[in-house]
């Protein structure tokens, strides 16, 4: 079992799903972590995988043809989220990579659900300076006490 290929796939996938706009602006989105992934089938034969997606996926020896799937966790700005990846090896080459979204994921639900309104795949931010508005609906201003406590904890963590 070689973890390198899985890690590459997961890092690439997580980067993809977090690369855009709203999610991409979150501080923690800069370090998508692929952790705790286990293939559902053992991989221990002698083929060479050489065409894994992702710029840093190098050749990795020792994979047997077949279909592998695993769940991966990554840190989204809002906590840990789970996605599934299915990877097909043929002739030692990765012939297919499929990201299987779990039912709790909004991407899955949006295809299953029926909505009175609509769906946006990616919303993007525009600077408030560029928009002609006099009011903002949001929740950025929190209590002074709360913010002070967060700062104090940050200071202790240095």
């Amino acid at each position: 079992m070689k973890p390198s290929i899985r890690k590459t796939v997961f890092a690439g996938m997580a980067g993809l799903s977090l690369a855009g706009t709203v999610a991409g602006c979150a501080p923690s989105a800069q370090q998508p972590a692929a952790q705790e992934t286990e293939p559902s089938a053992p991989a221990s034969a002698s083929a060479t995988a050489s065409a894994a997606p992702g710029p840093s996926a190098g050749a990795a020896a020792g994979y047997k043809d077949g279909t592998y799937s695993a769940d991966g966790n990554y840190k989204s700005p809002n906590g840990t989220e789970t996605v599934g990846v299915q990877l097909t090896l043929a002739g030692g080459t990765v012939s297919a990579v499929e990201i299987t979204e779990h039912p709790s994921n909004p991407n899955t639900r949006k295809f299953q659900g029926e909505f009175a309104g609509g769906i946006a795949d990616q919303v993007v931010g525009k600077s408030l300076d560029e928009i002609n508005v006099s009011k903002v609906a949001g929740s950025s201003l929190t209590s002074g006490g709360f913010n002070q406590a967060v700062e104090a904890i940050k200071a202790q963590a240095l």
Binding site: V22, C25, A26, P77, V124, I131, S134, V136, G138
Partner: peptide, 21 residues
């Protein structure tokens, strides 16, 4: 109606849209 910006969840200097209130 007042035009209101919808605050970007991760960046309070940005909006993800506007809506008339």
């Amino acid at each position: 109606p007042v035009q209101v910006a919808l605050e970007h969840p991760y960046d309070a200097t940005k909006a993800i849209g506007t809506v008339p209130l």
